[in-house]
């Protein structure tokens, strides 16, 4: 998905041009490539275009896939056949949809976590942002108001 007008506006006002560089804003996205099945859900839903379906496929994603997974079965067959290590990524024909490496660009990532929420294979982890900012100190003479008679 391309970046919306509001998204572009936000990014342009953030120092550093990326929400990842801003403390306390945006989740840290961790991709586990060995679990990725290449469905493209993250790429379809990403609001900033940080996640995109690539035209190439890294053959090691088959060879290193966990046992019992679909990619693992292909990897097992390929391991029996292979004569040498793969000599590079393979260009994927148009109609092959699930064997594609998802390209993830950290600079464009907003840290919204939509990819992690939609991933069917739990291959993306969105770690909550660390709050590095020190908690505000109460100034002299002013105490934080305690909740009184707050109705539910």
């Amino acid at each position: 998905m391309p970046l919306t007008h509001r998204g572009r506006e936000i990014l342009s006002r953030v120092p550093g041009g990326s929400l990842q560089s801003t403390v306390g804003v945006g989740c840290e996205i961790v991709r586990h490539e060995e679990l990725c099945v290449g469905c493209g859900t993250c790429a379809k839903n990403c609001p900033s275009g940080a996640s995109e379906r690539g035209d190439f496929f890294d053959v090691n994603q088959l060879l290193d896939a966990p046992d019992g997974s679909r990619r693992g079965e292909l990897g097992a067959a390929l391991r029996r056949l292979m004569q040498h290590e793969p000599d590079g990524p393979v260009e994927v024909p148009e109609r092959v949809t699930v064997y594609r490496t998802i390209i993830y660009e950290d600079d464009k990532c907003l840290g919204c976590g939509t990819c992690a929420r939609g991933c069917p294979a739990d291959a993306i982890e969105a770690r909550p942002p660390k709050a590095d900012v020190a908690p505000a100190q109460p100034s002299a003479g002013v105490s934080a108001p305690s909740p009184q008679g707050v109705s539910a």
């Binding site: 088959l62 056949l81 290590e85 109609r95």
Partner: peptide, 20 residues
């Protein structure tokens, strides 16, 4: 059959990349 053509091409490229 169009899907099959693309899948066969994909497998051919996979085989080529590992030396088969």
């Amino acid at each position: 059959n169009f899907n099959a053509v693309d899948r066969v091409a994909f497998v051919q490229r996979l085989l080529k990349s590992v030396g088969v």
